[in-house]
Simulated assay, not measured.
Amino acid sequence: MSEIRTPLAVHRTVLAVDVRGFGDQGRNTPAQVAVRAGMYRALERAFRAAGLSWRECHREDRGDGVFVLAPAETPKGPFVETLPRALVTELRAHNAKHPPAEQIRLRMALHAGEVTFDDHGVTASAVNLTFRLLDAPAVKQALAESPGVLALIASGWFFDEVVRNSAALDAATFRPVRVAVKETDTVAWISLPDHPYPPAAEQAPPAEEPPSPAPAVTMTATNSGRGSIYQAARDQHITER
């Protein structure tokens, strides 16, 4: 879909996905073509199953992934309530019919914010943050260690505004992680839609007070929810003060 170009920033839900191991030696060009076709087919079908309009979204190809901007009037809930499970279903159906080199496992990042369109595409700090989340070592590790096909990472804003307020989700199955990639240093939240973390007994506090500069830590919280990297950062900050 072509967006109307305007010098004014407009609000969008920002979604990006990336295929794990797309450039592995075991994937030749025909395998990569099959993976890309399967990825797009899975996304289109998952959007439809989630009640989201793929056609009305602005989309940009990233070779081993896709970048999507949903219109401001599109509800954000389905992006975490129904889209991930629908995408898991489509990915599993694809993988069941294809050899290992053509199978797909995805990372997905979610955020929202103001973006500006120009003659070449879009630009915004919200877009930059989404791609930093997608590249975070923590979400790559989460997917590598999961037997599932999808790992989701949501920004702190998306978690606080959408996940925490959803009647269809258990926010306690998300885990906080520190994301320190390039100029970004923030707290985000990871979930594994097809192999969810057990509900945490205690959730880390919201990222209202940023931690003091410290060596980047990218491990997820323990299954019990205690000892999260965010809580550790807060404890260190308190001690140093």
Rank of each mutant, 00 (worst) to 15 (best):
M1C: 15
R12E: 02
R12V: 02
T13Q: 11
L15M: 14
L15N: 10
A16L: 10
V17R: 02
V19D: 12
R27C: 04
N28Y: 01
T29M: 13
T29H: 12
Q32F: 01
R36I: 06
A37W: 05
R41L: 14
E44G: 07
A49G: 14
G51I: 14
L52M: 08
L52R: 02
R55D: 15
C57Q: 15
E60F: 00
D61C: 10
R62T: 12
G63M: 00
G63P: 00
G65W: 07
F67W: 15
V68E: 03
A72I: 08
P78K: 11
F79D: 02
V80P: 05
L83F: 01
R85K: 15
V88G: 09
L91R: 04
R92H: 04
A96C: 02
A101D: 04
Q103M: 00
L106S: 07
L110V: 08
H111T: 08
H111N: 10
T116C: 08
D118T: 03
H120C: 02
G121R: 05
A124N: 14
A126D: 09
V127Q: 03
F131L: 02
F131N: 01
F131K: 00
L134R: 05
A136Y: 13
A136W: 12
Q141R: 10
V149N: 04
V149W: 02
L150R: 03
I153E: 01
I153W: 06
D160M: 10
E161H: 00
V162G: 07
R164H: 07
N165W: 06
A171R: 07
A172Q: 14
F174V: 11
A180N: 15
V181F: 05
K182W: 05
V187Y: 11
A188Q: 05
A188Y: 02
H195L: 00
Y197N: 11
A200G: 09
A204L: 05
E208H: 10
E208W: 06
E209T: 15
P210A: 03
S212I: 13
A214Y: 07
T222V: 07
R226S: 11
R226W: 13
S228Q: 13
S228R: 13
A233M: 09
A233K: 08
R234H: 12
Q236N: 12
E240T: 07
